[in-house]
Amino acid sequence: MPPLNLSPHDSSPPTQKHPLTSPVTPTPGPARPTLTTTDTNPRDRKWAANLAAAKQFYEREGHLNVPRKHVETVLAEEGWELQFRLGAWVSNQRSRAATLSEDRREQLSSIGMRWS
């Protein structure tokens, strides 16, 4: 082992002078949640997730008069808590009613969406 140089001009600790002899492998974190849908289009997956949040809100509250700033927390199948800006989303769907597909309008109407 080489002698330690502890001169006043050397500010790095001795352990930082020698490179690592074995590579360090980072420990992977928890897996990111995945939505359980068969859609491959990201917009369709996002629509399905927001629709699920709207259904949850409707089942709990009995209406879809969601305050504009409301954030809905949904528990995914994997155990993750996902948060959706549901108030803004519902408001946007109402304002885009004329351009929504018939299928999407029916999905929202079936859970109690009032369009005006």
Rank of each mutant, 00 (worst) to 15 (best):
Q93T: 02
R43K: 06
R68G: 04
L75Q: 10
N5Q: 12
D44C: 07
I111Y: 13
P13C: 12
F84Y: 09
E102Y: 06
R114S: 13
F84N: 02
R104M: 08
L4P: 07
N41R: 11
R94E: 02
Q83W: 00
R96Y: 11
T73Q: 08
G62K: 06
E77Y: 00
A88E: 08
A49V: 00
R104Q: 12
V24A: 12
E81R: 02
L35Q: 02
T25V: 15
T27R: 14
A98S: 15
N92K: 03
A48S: 05
P8F: 04
A98V: 07
W80A: 06
Q16G: 10
W80P: 01
K69W: 01
S7R: 09
Q93V: 05
A97N: 02
P3L: 11
D103K: 15
T15E: 11
T99Q: 13
H9V: 06
F57V: 02
K17T: 13
V66E: 05
T73C: 11
A97D: 03
H70I: 03
W115T: 10
P14M: 05
P14C: 07
H18R: 11
D103M: 15
E81Y: 00
T27D: 13
Y58A: 14
T99H: 07
R68D: 13
E102N: 15
A31I: 14
T73M: 10
R105G: 05
Y58F: 12
N65W: 01
R105C: 09
N65T: 12
L100W: 09
N41A: 14
G112C: 12
L64P: 04
T99N: 11
R45L: 12
Q83E: 04
T25A: 12
L86M: 03
L82P: 01
E81L: 01
T40I: 01
R85L: 01
W47V: 04
G29A: 08
R94C: 04
A31C: 12
P28C: 04
A54Y: 02
L6A: 13
N65K: 03
E61I: 01
G79T: 08
R85E: 05
P19V: 05
P26I: 03
W89M: 00
A76C: 08
R105I: 07
R68W: 06
A54V: 01
E77I: 05
P23N: 11
P33N: 06
F84H: 05
